[in-house]
Nucleic acid binder design. Structure first.
Lengths: 344, 344
DNA sequence: AGATTTTTCGCAATCGTATTCAAAGAACCT
DNA sequence: AGGTTCTTTGAATACGATTGCGAAAAATCT
């Protein structure tokens, strides 16, 4: 990187192309700028010969004059929850489809975070998308987003910044309803981060729906982290209280919980639900009932909010997900048949 | 994105700063260019007042003159294997540490791939890192890497391009040795992609070590994909042949296989090994013996090859991983104790 | 046909920095 | 002191596009 690769033959410039076909350099530029004032025949001729000699406008130079980079900075801090890779994948593709590139900022908590984000400013990214669990305090958040369009994904609690997330309230209520309808009455709750707005939202929707249906919370616990081990420990803690179902605040917790319940031999008596629908929840070994986050809708809305001229006054966009019923809430004890694999 | 955010106050330029403190613009530029000809006192004075008024060099402008972007294009195409998120995370952080930004290219197979990669050229990324399973044919690969430093991660078979990967041969041999030492003699193999160079490498190392130890392959099968379901199906296919161990070409296959074996009630009689050491392999519910890919070493080597002035003649860098022994190859039938969770 | 409006196109300035070149200053030698 | 070398600095230019402005050309109107 210190030295330019010698085999790099300099690309053609607009001026060279212009000289070659005897038009002005501006004409070449306009040929590549949609909506600019240029006659169709000339434009076509230019585009044609551009294709022939392999000319492409240099994006860097154009950034300098237009002050737009078509780059969005994607701030991420922890990918250990398998939900995020899927979101990340869809999101980068969605942005790519509308001509936006994604510059990754993978910040490590603790260290001077602003320094990890300076490129957001020096590279003049057009927009910043911040995914969830990122450990940004309000000051850093303001600094990073200052002067550019910003958007929070799956991270609530900032009324001044546009936010896109799954409808956590609807999801939690829907899961409670499902447990109720399948006959469960003694429901426990395993929380992840209780201090996070998203964790709180799910929990309060859970308890309020419980109350509406006339049930009492059978037990609750939290390890303040979303992880498999936390779910395992949480489930073990709740099992003695004899719940007939456990509501896990996220799938990754639920998977740990399911394994713990299998291990303890109570998997058939205690139903389990999660939240997210990560790929593993669909594995025959788990077969977890859960509320699927509408990744596609989230991506579409995100792209829309980033590309639309004027985003409109609504800040919070909570999109409906979908209940996915699997064997972990089967009314009958889980049969072997319920665990058969999908046809490969 | 169509319109610049109005609250974006224009940042200070080097010329403004220069005027403010009565030096030339070149001086400011030099103050921020390590190794350039400038006296220490002047440099310090400039840096000091730059800090005060919040000046930072505009990276875009500097890209234009230097023709270096400090951006590496990261080409990815499928994140469904949980090994890649971890690699991705470490890699972006590693690059960030040496001042390189990561521009994501998440290509969807099938569609016109070059179009999805044009930004590699127009954005003038300094280097291209291509991660594994990406579906690039040789022509596209050459086109995408032309004129810039390129590097393949976990994808063999291109002798002209620098390649960094885990030592698949050593890994496979090591796993076979472990199975042998723990008393297994009838070993089956579940492959993923048999046509991929990496799949072939693991398989041939497996068979050759088997032969060296005087064993015969008990059975082999492949679904031509690395997935949980494929592993499940593969295991079911091998079980009738009564192996005492199954070698899965990757962890994700092994997890499906383990669940299938549990389901079939033979998990205690058949050992299983995988390859990668993805996070789930360490979960108490699986506890899979595997060969850990040295992500940290891979990242370090990658960063080194991208930053060093002259990469040297060696093309293939196969880095040693590490055998991780867990309950799936326990000599005794798996006891309940072996499945206890880590202390939370 | 002549006048007026609209399109099209080239010239030139601009974006913010890096870097060459030459001049000036400092340091070093004999 | 005088000459030589090395260091430091600023002026000027280049990087490769975009875009305002005005002139020429084309289209429209009366």
């Amino acid at each position: 990187m210190r030295k330019q690769n010698p085999k790099a033959s300099k690309p053609v410039t607009s001026r060279q192309l212009a000289a070659l076909i005897g038009v002005s350099q501006s004409a070449v530029s306009r040929a590549f700028t949609p909506g600019s004032s240029i006659a169709a025949p000339l434009r076509d001729r230019i585009l044609q010969s551009a294709r022939e000699i392999g000319y492409r406008p240099n994006a860097i130079a154009s950034m300098l004059t237009t002050r737009r980079t078509n780059i969005v900075g994607l701030v991420v801090s922890d990918m250990s929850n398998p939900f995020y890779p899927a979101l990340l994948e869809q999101l980068t593709q969605g942005l790519q489809r509308v001509g936006l590139q994604t510059l990754m900022f993978n910040i490590t908590p603790g260290a001077n975070i602003e320094e990890q984000l300076v490129a957001i400013r020096t590279y003049n990214v057009d927009a910043v998308v911040i995914i969830s669990a990122t450990v940004l305090n309000d000051r850093t958040l303001a600094w990073a987003t200052e002067g550019r369009r910003a958007l929070l994904l799956n991270r609530l609690g900032h009324d001044d910044i546009m936010t896109v997330c799954c409808d956590n309230t609807a999801g939690a209520r829907c899961l409670v309803d499902h447990l109720y309808e399948t006959g469960r009455r003694r429901i426990g709750y395993v929380a992840g981060l209780t201090k996070s707005a998203i964790g709180m939202t799910r929990y309060s929707a859970f308890t309020s729906r419980l109350a509406e249906l006339g049930m009492r919370l059978t037990g609750t616990t939290s390890r303040e982290i979303y992880s498999y081990d936390a779910g395992w420990a949480g489930a073990l803690e709740l099992i003695p209280q004899k719940p007939d179902a456990i509501f896990f605040a996220s799938d990754i917790l639920a998977l740990g919980g399911l394994d713990a319940m299998k291990q303890a031999g109570v998997a058939r008596e205690i139903a389990a639900v999660g939240f997210d629908d990560i790929p593993m929840s669909g594995w025959p070994g788990y077969s977890l009932t859960t509320y699927r986050q509408p990744i596609e809708k989230i991506v579409d809305k995100t792209v829309e909010l980033l590309t639309v001229a004027e985003p409109g006054p609504t800040r919070l966009h909570a999109l409906p997900g979908e209940l996915v019923v699997r064997a972990s809430t089967a009314t009958e004890p889980q049969s072997a048949a319920a665990l058969l694999p999908l046809t490969p």
